[in-house]
């Protein structure tokens, strides 16, 4: 019954199964129980197929008893075990799942993030006016911001008590006295807009997310000057406020396109 004569894998499977020996088999013994019977080396079989005996011996040797040195790392491993028990590592950080996203989804994330950024900065500005020093992180989890994205002209956030109308007269030259809420939003929008690559800024202004900014500035051409007045570029922005938007901006800046897809980003990565 030479397993190499035919394509029947059952014999090789048995042969393989018998090989691991070092755990159970006593040391100093060779292939203790070759699975194939003595007829494996009958001459007429050997003439047609390579003999199986040497392979059995080879597998037995490969799975042979522990060699000196193979367990040399035992103490180090146990020390690692002890150490891991003593300081349980904070759950191994899951690698961020990278999924392919359609361009449309990416673009819509861009819109969402821009609005969320505006909201975060807006909230931060509002909070700045309060004496409360304990400011919770203004990061906004992305699952919810689609409200803001779809309705960028209507900040549905509860923070804004009385939002200045986006249809403010274009002649407004954006003095910060326009009102805290609007200014806060414009701060965020300006930052989001500036975070984009220069070649994508013009395109970004055509997206719904930045319509408010365009309106407030009095036209796409005036946005830059408007933002310069509102948020002087030289002034380092407060890190606490920018933090939530920074990763989003970095991720989104390469994709400025905004296809006219329906504003349903939902879970953007689901697509």
């Amino acid at each position: 019954m030479n397993p190499f004569r035919r394509a029947d894998h059952a014999d090789t499977e048995r042969l393989l199964d018998s090989a691991p020996a070092w755990v159970d088999a006593p040391l100093d013994q060779g292939p203790s129980a070759p699975p194939t019977e003595a007829d494996a080396n009958s001459p007429e079989v050997t003439s047609h197929a390579p003999p199986v005996e040497p392979v059995i011996a080879l597998l037995a040797a490969a799975a042979g008893p522990v060699r000196p040195g193979e367990l040399a790392g035992e103490d180090a491993a146990v020390a690692a075990f002890r150490n891991a028990r003593a300081n349980p590592a904070p759950a191994v950080p899951q690698r961020p799942r990278r999924r392919r996203m359609t361009t449309g989804a990416v673009a819509w994330i861009g819109a969402v993030a821009a609005t969320a950024t505006a909201g975060a900065a807006f909230a931060a500005v509002t909070r700045d006016r309060e004496p409360d020093p304990v400011a919770p992180a203004p990061s906004r989890p992305s699952p919810s911001p689609h409200q803001g994205a779809s309705r960028s002209t209507e900040p549905g956030r509860s923070v804004g008590p009385d939002v200045a109308s986006p249809g403010a007269p274009p002649s407004v030259t954006a003095t910060p006295s326009t009102g805290p809420t609007t200014v806060g939003q414009m701060h965020g929008l300006c930052r989001a807009w500036r975070a984009k690559k220069p070649e994508q800024r013009e395109k970004a202004l055509r997206t719904p997310a930045f319509q408010k900014l365009v309106t407030a500035a009095g036209g796409p051409a005036k946005v830059e000057a408007y933002c310069q007045r509102l948020v002087p570029e030289t002034k380092p922005s407060e890190p606490a406020k920018v933090t939530p938007s920074a990763p989003a901006k970095g991720k989104l800046s390469p994709s400025g396109q905004a296809p006219p897809a329906p504003p349903r980003p939902g879970h953007p990565t689901g697509g």
Partner: peptide, 29 residues
């Protein structure tokens, strides 16, 4: 052969197989 093939030699021979086959043999045996 059973007496003469040492563990190291056997492993070295298995390692000469194409990687897929070598891995399959090693994991199984």
């Amino acid at each position: 052969a059973s007496e003469t093939i040492g563990t190291e030699t056997a492993l070295a021979l298995i390692a000469t197989l194409p990687p897929r086959e070598a891995e399959a043999v090693l994991l199984r045996a």
